[in-house]
């Protein structure tokens, strides 16, 4: 699966994002156009390069800040923690990988879920964190996403999930695969009660995550330039032994192939989401 790309390439923009989090580092070079950017300006611009519109990867906290009503987010299920139930050990023990990721992100696992307000409309929100083991989906991610969706079934508020994930978490073996079915099953319940689900595909969304809840939005949105795929580009290249075309599996490619409804600039995300929610939501809202 395409988490391969994360492990073997150690993606450029994630390295940059890590750098961005080091205090005192005032300047940064854009990953795409190499323009030197003043960090403060970049932050004001929602971490989008003013020169080339490259969307840097951001943390769930930043996404909440940019998109939802100030201080409206109420987190839930933050206490759920992963367990190394297979005693999985590769070049590193899974328990150690977990510890490191927790220290790095200050989170127990790769998704943050809860309720928030979007231009005064109540919504249920999930945001994946790519910095936590490549945003991979194991039992905790699957459970938190499922509970979030079930909350939507209960409170009838729209569900919005921002995905950023290399796919299933190999260290949890077959159990991680089953999270695909679990989350999709929850979405079936949500669909039955006619509550809107909006999926926002962020860089990157691949493998088991794209092949489950990420592609199942009533409306699928994508950030510009995000890699969204089932199989990762490297896996495909190895299989068919030819170079892939430019822009392959990027948001714009998905748009032209009918897989997403809109590609939305980060600065427009709040406005776009709130309009979709207002129109689709069964809870009547003022426009």
């Amino acid at each position: 699966m395409s988490i391969l790309d994360w492990f073997s390439q150690k993606d450029k923009s994630s390295v940059v994002t890590e750098k961005l989090n080091i205090p005192g580092n005032l300047w940064i070079k854009c990953t795409k156009c190499a323009e030197v950017l003043f960090l403060k300006d970049l932050d004001l611009n929602h971490k989008v390069c003013p020169n080339c519109q490259f969307h840097f990867r951001i943390t769930p906290e930043e996404r909440l800040k940019y998109i939802f009503d100030f201080d409206s987010f109420q987190e839930m299920d933050a206490h759920l923690k992963p367990i190394d139930f297979l005693k999985f050990e590769d070049t590193e023990k899974y328990v150690d990988r977990i510890k490191k990721a927790q220290a790095k992100t200050q989170k127990n696992d790769a998704v943050v879920t809860g309720t928030a307000r979007l231009k005064k409309q109540d919504v249920n929100v999930g945001i994946m964190d790519f910095a936590f083991l490549g945003g991979s989906m194991g039992s905790v991610v699957g459970e938190k996403i499922s509970r979030l969706i079930e909350l939507g079934v209960e409170n009838k508020n729209p569900v919005i999930i921002f995905t950023s994930s290399g796919g299933a978490r190999m260290q949890e073996g077959i159990m991680s695969l089953m999270q695909m079915a679990k989350t999709s099953a929850a979405l079936h319940k949500l669909a039955k009660v006619n509550v809107p689900y909006i999926s926002v595909l962020c860089d990157p969304t691949t493998g088991g995550t794209s092949a489950s809840f990420a592609m199942l939005g009533d409306v699928n949105l994508a950030e510009p330039g995000a890699l969204v795929s089932f199989a990762g580009p490297r896996v495909i290249e190895q299989t068919i032994r030819q170079k892939l075309p430019d822009g392959f599996q990027r948001s714009e490619f998905l748009l032209s192939h009918g897989m997403v409804d809109r590609v939305v600039q980060r600065k427009d995300m709040r406005e776009t989401l709130s309009r979709i929610v207002a129109i689709l939501s069964p809870v009547a809202c003022e426009l």
């Binding site: 695909m180 079915a181 999709s184 099953a185 979405l187 079936h188 669909a191 039955k192 794209s210 092949a211 489950s212 809840f213 990420a214 592609m215 199942l216 969204v228 795929s229 089932f230 199989a231 990762g232 896996v235 495909i236 299989t239 068919i240 892939l244 075309p245 392959f248 599996q249 192939h257 009918g258 897989m259």
Partner: peptide, 23 residues
């Protein structure tokens, strides 16, 4: 894992089956 499979929405096809089989 192929170019055409991606173009025609491999991820969407599988995801939809997971959801629809549930019901």
């Amino acid at each position: 894992p192929g170019i055409e499979a991606e173009e025609r929405g491999q991820a969407e096809a599988i995801a939809r089956n997971l959801r629809e089989m549930t019901g």
